[in-house]
Amino acid sequence: MAETVKVYSRPKTLIDKPWHFCPGCHHGIAHRLCAEVVEEMGLQEMTVGVGSVGCGVFSYEYFNFDGIGPSHGRAPAVATGVKRVLPDRLVFTYQGDGDLAAIGTTEMVHAAVRGEKITIVFINNTVYGMTGGQMAPTTLMGQVTTTSPLGREAKQAGYPIRVCEMLATMEGAAYVSRVALFNPAQVVKAKKSIRKAFETQMQGVGFSLVEILSACPTNWGLSPLEAAKYVENNLVPVFPLGEFKVPEGVK
């Protein structure tokens, strides 16, 4: 080929280093989408990423912009502080389901209730990934994990929590959506949704949350491709995709 044009290359908002994620883990795609959106919005110098505890714990090692590592589940509280002191910054948290929907439920709910102008990127893979695949609040009924070896039973462990549906009822939440990453079309939609959430924040409209249904091939005991299919066939019926709340004027 003579002259070439770049179609895709690594965004500058990602530090050039290998990731600790398992093969086929959707965390990598989610990290990349956040970084791409920050780059496209030209906000690399104006972004503060707030990490979490779990597989997303090293986000500050990978994102090439400012980052904070808060204690377990407290990312929305830390992000609230950062955003109130530096209101012109893009402040987003990157949290898994163990961090956000279990120990961090209070912080997440009250950040939404207060209408804090922050964004939460919520990775829902239905298990505690880093600690070995234990049952999480989002684990599906009947799903086998290391702490529900016979499958999740309602009598013992209740039902999966639907974060988007819950937050969509709150007046303080401006943009709430659920996306997935199981095929290229979904990845494109997920990126658009993250963009909308960040725009919601930067236009000063209010609180935004994007839930990303993700595969955890290692803890589900599936190949990367089977895990992507599992998201499509098993997670999506329980956690329907779509935008639950969209503010006017944000495209």
């Binding site: 080929m1 003579a2 002259e3 070439t4 044009v5 770049k6 179609v7 895709y8 290359s9 690594r10 990602l14 290998p18 990731w19 994620f21 093969p23 086929g24 883990c25 959707h26 965390h27 990598g28 795609i29 990349r32 095929n183 290229p184 990845v187 494109v188």
Partner: peptide, 14 residues
């Protein structure tokens, strides 16, 4: 766009 480890770069002819 599907690669979780950002190992792929793509170019096309101008």
């Amino acid at each position: 766009r599907m690669c979780p480890d950002v190992v792929i770069e793509v170019v096309r002819e101008a």
